[in-house]
Amino acid sequence: MDKLYIICVDDQREVLNALTEDLELFESHLHIEECESADEAWDVIESVDSEGDHVAVLVTDQVMPKNSGVDLLKKLREDGRFDQTRTVLLTGQATHKDTIEAINTAHLDNYIEKPWKKEALHETIKVLITKFLLAKGLDYQKLTDVIDQNTLLTNLRKTT
């Protein structure tokens, strides 16, 4: 099966560590990549794509030196290869304007405020992974630990 990735971006290493630590649950089935800048994240996204694997979820901080999280999300959205990749903006200091911009121009899927709650983060990521798998038509049966049942059931009702 093709590999699935969750890409985490935050310029603060401590925060990045805490984030991947909290996402460890997903590592049983998905790969987690840590990136300290938007540019680094883009390189990783490109290499995942060139291997024929999938970026299922991108979790990014907003305020970073050079390219911001919103810049990264916009770039991802404008690239047809990643139109199903789900995105999360994770930040404690986004201004109202940043958030609106992220939603309007980068079609942000989710906005999580720092400090986050582990359970809430898990729920969100599960829903996003499920949506990604269903949209991509990938096999979800072996991933029951990391997908959201409600999202799955709602979708399965529509099939025959």
């Binding site: 049942q149 409600n150 799955l152 059931l153 709602t154 399965l156 009702r157 529509k158 099939t159 025959t160």
Partner: peptide, 16 residues
């Protein structure tokens, strides 16, 4: 009349 899977999905979400 419906697939067993779709029926189960519907009933499970009603029951959730």
């Amino acid at each position: 009349f419906m697939s067993n899977t779709a029926t189960t999905a519907m009933m499970l979400s009603i029951l959730a």
